[in-house]
Nucleic acid binder design. Structure first.
Lengths: 237, 237
DNA sequence: CGCGCCGTTGATTTGAATCAAGTATTGTGG
DNA sequence: CCACAATACTTGATTCAAATCAACGGCGCG
């Protein structure tokens, strides 16, 4: 779905109040820099299902996710899809070397991003090595996650994939919202399947199996971890 | 295999003569900086099969690969292995956020690296943003490759995996040694299997099948692309 | 020369995909 | 607010691609 009714707020917001101030790229900026930085970004809203940018697009902007969840994915010519990650608030999107995005990004549910035009953002970084270092840090962290995910895709069974996903997703939400055995899953079964390199049927069956074994409870829009130790045992393997 | 008979050369080498000078991290340094940089790195040799660093090791050094090929991999507790990449001359290894390497690295065949102690290297970067930018660039490039590989692992068939691997490997060698339809494969079938998320038998069968169809010829230590168009068609899917 | 590793090939099994319904949930227009 | 269409999810039957199990040939090395 292409962006249609996106809303661009007038600049009536302040970075200092921003929900992701503490852990996004901008965490590396001091209060003075932040005031300058404020003029670079614009808050933009996307509705559920809208595409924020596409794989083949020329990169004109970078994005700092403020609210909501996004799916990041690549498509093969015949339509097969691999989701390469889910983005959560604080994630920084759009860095690349080829001047083109190398994946597409859709809003899952309503999303708010802080959008930066590429050129001014580049200029702002130019003489602020600490911001560059922060960006580098985020890139290296992502690279580590990407490698972990390769292990999952290449060498784990369906059961292990699903168990690992549930625990990993809970862990990510934990650092945003605190610990809970109730794990919201805003993405569809198809999204989960395309993330784990499985089919929707296999994901569904695996969820059901986990529930039958008392490891989880399937809720609307999520799951509850009934027996975390059991799920961990499955994921470790 | 652990490093045993590694050789450390006395500092009788010059960065300006270095084979990877033009495209490694150090490409971003001017001649004066290079002279200072020279004192930071030491050339170290590893024999075939030796481990340069391991997943669980504390990071004490960064490595610039000068000669040879390395396999980078992660292991699951039960021994399943996923090769997350092959390193070629010019590749920069060891960057991480957790102070631990998040993968292991073995020499495939004889290898020469330029080894940098972490602390002095960090200090050297400190006031040289262009070097940091270069490192960032390499990290982002790798991230793109990692995402491509996720698509391969999660969504491609065995035939597509092998065909894509052969073309990709040829492409990488091309930028080092120029174009050729003869593609050396210094890694074992097991390595290829662990890179592609397949078994050794499936890799072997797929090679044989490609040969029977006249797409490739299997040589000792490599293959020859007889019908590149056909291999490309398989890889595209 | 013979042992061991690497790669190939064949037979069989199996985990996940595919094919095929059916049920629940959400959204829409009357 | 309800009827109905569309979408999301589940479940079952069957197929199939790749894994596993098994054996053998070739090459390299002590």
């Amino acid at each position: 779905m292409r962006a249609s009714v996106t809303t661009i707020e007038p600049n009536g917001h302040f970075c200092s109040d921003c929900a992701v101030r503490g852990f996004a790229v901008c965490a590396s900026l001091d209060p003075e820099e932040l005031r300058e930085f404020e003029h670079l970004g614009r808050r933009v809203h996307f509705a559920a299902g809208e595409t924020v940018f596409s794989e083949e697009d020329i990169t004109t902007s970078f994005y700092n996710l403020l609210e909501g969840v996004m799916r990041l994915y690549k498509l093969l010519p015949d339509g097969r899809r691999q989701i390469v990650g889910f983005a959560l608030p604080g994630d920084f999107l759009g860095m690349n070397i080829s001047d083109r995005h190398n994946f597409s990004a859709d809003a899952i549910g309503a999303v708010t991003v802080c959008q930066f035009a590429k050129a001014p953002f580049g200029r702002f970084i130019e003489d602020r090595p600490h911001l560059l270092r922060r960006i580098n840090e985020l890139a290296i962290r992502e690279l580590g996650q990407a490698r972990d995910h390769m292990v999952l895709l290449g060498r784990r069974s369906a059961d292990e994939k699903v168990a690992t996903f549930l625990l990993g997703w809970r862990e990510r939400l934990f650092s945003l919202k605190g610990s809970s055995n109730t794990v919201p899953l805003p993405m569809s079964r198809q999204d989960i399947a395309d993330y784990l390199g499985l089919t929707i049927e296999t994901v569904s069956r695996t969820f059901t199996k986990l529930e039958r074994h008392g490891a989880i409870e399937i809720l609307h829009g999520g799951i509850s971890l009934r027996d975390p130790a059991r799920v961990e045992a499955l994921a470790a393997a």
